[in-house]
Design a protein around this nucleic acid. Structure first.
Length: 572
RNA sequence: GCGGCUGUAGCUCAGCGGAUUAGAGCAUCGGUCUUCGGAACCGAGGGUCGGGGGUUCGAAUCCCUCCAGCCGCACCA
């Protein structure tokens, strides 16, 4: 179907094109009319004509028959009011549309999304939360839009720490080490290795030798290393299941994957004449970057000791994602501190010709998770907060809240619901603010059932479903049409019709919070409707109409939440 | 020093391709209703949109500048 927004846009565009080809109508929802087109104002400015004249011209040219009426207001605003018949028709189509009006992409793009990226042999902590949650939401949104998502979990599985980790594994014995790792207490494993490394010179020496062996490809060392990796990946999978994240073990393509491609990267850069030796290191100096002394800032590709740094790996990854994965879009869901690093990586990749103009490459930046003191979120004792612990605590709170309100749930139902509510709370809190901002992790606030929270949206959905449960018989929408004579109904209907543009804007800007804003607004429209409009006690056509609005609202909420990676249980 | 991000109601945040009256949630206060699940709804108070300039008929939104906070600025990822 063509969304309501798109119908309006096309009609307006045709009229605008007659006045000034390509002029943007700047169409958006409005509280003045149903929609407003502000493009007249800039068009007037651009042509030097009085806005009202232009507005009148557009109104004369635009064909909105059967769709809407247009009024000129103020200096030259175009307020649009949808016609009842058009709304009825659009809502009627929605009843049979599982996509709730969102068109599927005509050409599926390959979208490579790099997110989560935990470290092998290290616990996942709050620092991984945002990348994981935001990245997964974007992945779900892209898939729904009809694109082919290639998720890349760029785990830290290489580097000097692996010398000590492997030696620690040897010390423990493989069986003991695997047991220790599979319990999920990765931090104590890492800490133990670290401690030995710091206090035991002999261990330190062994660790260094082990790094050399690892890099040289020594078979036994690689085998031991792969134990660490596979145990960790298995652990990550558990965390992802707990969080309901779509990343699979196959998506893990760690830093080590690029090892054998790094020589090539350097050679290519050299042949392109981009490589410069500086202080013994091989660097690229992309224009426009300076250090604190105002001197050109290098991207160090190969260190003085001839080892490769992360820049080389990231460059190899860009190249791989364009050449081999045929990515049309490359997204990196990585925190704000690495902004300059990625700018440089992208700049160098463009210089080297690895990143064609038509490939969109973007660092999807997000801010920090802060504690109540507005500083980086840490435990009281100053340690990083484990993701699993965070979820467990959220689940306990959700469980307690459910226990207080529903004694009729079975134990297993309550546990299952608590898990769903807790995930919703944590994810929605993360997704609902503009991602570049830091946000304060406040479990009390996010798990509240009132206000702009995940659980509130789940609740709105559950209330809707309960109406259909009370109905007893199965309902179908065959007899429904939309007169929308009660303002609350019409207001809700307008919200329903706006789902496609809300989704598309969120996706285009890579801003899941826009979808959150939409869903919360829809939920509020629904509750207002719910107060004003009895459903089950209504009769005849009015009852069918209201049931249909409930059905559409429930489905829109459920779909929208699912695109954020949040479940919408039928009962709470 | 250079660069980036952030600064909107007591608190947490939307709005920032300029445009008609600056919004929401929480909290506070006051109401509604013998609830299709009250985990609800309605209303009120509360804002020099960090400060100051500028562009514009019109700026929270664009430009400049200053202030505050956080982050980055060569061999750790």
């Amino acid at each position: 179907m063509t969304s309501t927004y798109d119908v309006l846009l096309r009609r307006l565009q045709a009229a605008f094109d007659l006045v000034a080809p390509g002029a943007d109508p700047v169409l958006r929802q409005s509280d003045r009319g149903d929609y407003q087109a502000n493009g007249v104002m800039s068009l007037a400015k651009q042509t030097g004509r009085p806005p009202r004249d232009v507005a009148e011209q557009i109104v004369g040219l635009v064909d909105l028959v059967g769709v809407a009426s247009a009024d000129i207001a103020g200096p030259g605003f175009l307020n649009l009011t949808l016609s009842p018949s058009f709304m009825n028709a659009q809502l009627g189509v929605l009843l049979g549309d599982a996509r709730m009006g969102v068109a599927s992409a005509s050409r599926a793009k390959n979208v490579v999304i790099d997110y989560s990226a935990p470290n092998v042999a290290k616990e996942m902590h709050v620092g991984h939360l945002r990348s994981t949650v935001i990245g997964d939401a974007l992945a779900r949104m892209y898939r729904f839009a009809g694109h082919h998502v290639i998720a890349r979990n760029h785990v830290g599985d290489w580097g000097t720490p692996f010398g000590m980790l492997i030696e620690h594994l040897v010390d423990l014995g493989e069986e003991q080490a695997m047991a220790s790792l599979s319990i999920g207490d990765l931090d104590s494993f890492y800490r133990a290795a670290r401690t030995k490394f710091d206090v035991d010179d002999d261990f330190k020496e062994r660790s260094r030798a082990r790094v050399v062996a690892l890099q040289a490809g020594d078979a036994e060392t690689r085998r031991l290393w792969s134990i660490l990796v596979s145990e960790s990946v298995a652990y990550f999978a558990e965390v992802y299941t707990k969080l309901d994240i779509t990343l699979a073990p196959e998506d893990v393509v760690g830093e080590s994957y690029y090892n054998d491609k790094l020589d090539d990267v350097v050679r290519d850069l050299d042949q392109a004449g981009l490589l410069v030796e500086s202080d013994g290191a091989l660097c690229v100096f992309p224009p426009g970057f300076t250090n604190r002394d105002g001197e050109p800032l290098p991207l160090i590709v190969q260190k003085r000791d001839e080892g490769y740094g992360y820049a080389a790996t990231d460059l190899a990854a860009v190249r791989d994602r364009v050449r081999n994965l045929h990515g049309d879009e490359l997204l990196y869901v990585v925190g704000a501190p690495q902004a300059q690093h990625f700018e440089m990586i992208f700049a160098v990749a463009r210089l080297a010709g690895w990143l064609p103009e038509n490939v969109r490459c973007e660092h999807v930046i997000f801010g920090n998770v802060l504690g109540p003191d507005r500083k980086m979120f840490k435990t009281r004792s100053g340690e990083t907060v484990k993701l699993v612990g965070l979820l467990d605590e959220a689940t306990e709170r959700a469980y307690a809240a459910l226990e207080e309100r529903h004694s009729d749930l079975s134990e297993s139902e309550r546990i299952h619901l608590a898990v769903q509510v807790a995930r919703a709370a944590v994810k929605y809190a993360d997704l609902s603010t503009e991602r570049q901002r830091d946000y304060i992790f406040d479990l009390d606030r996010m798990i509240a059932f009132e206000g702009d929270t995940g659980p509130y949206l789940q609740y709105a959905h559950a209330r809707l479903r309960s109406i259909f449960r009370r109905l007893g018989s199965t309902w179908n929408s065959d007899g429904a049409s939309f007169a929308l004579e009660v303002p609350a109904q019409r207001h809700l209907a307008l919200g329903l019709l706006a789902f496609p543009e809300a989704f598309e804007l969120a996706l285009a800007a890579l801003q899941p919070h826009r979808l959150c804003v939409y869903l919360f607004d829809l939920a509020q429209r629904f509750t207002a409707f719910y107060e004003a409009c009895p459903v089950l006690s209504a009769e005849g056509a009015l009852r069918e109409e209201r049931l249909a609005l409930c059905d559409l609202t429930a489905r829109t909420l459920s779909l929208g939440l699912s695109l954020l990676g949040i479940e919408a249980p039928d009962q709470m």
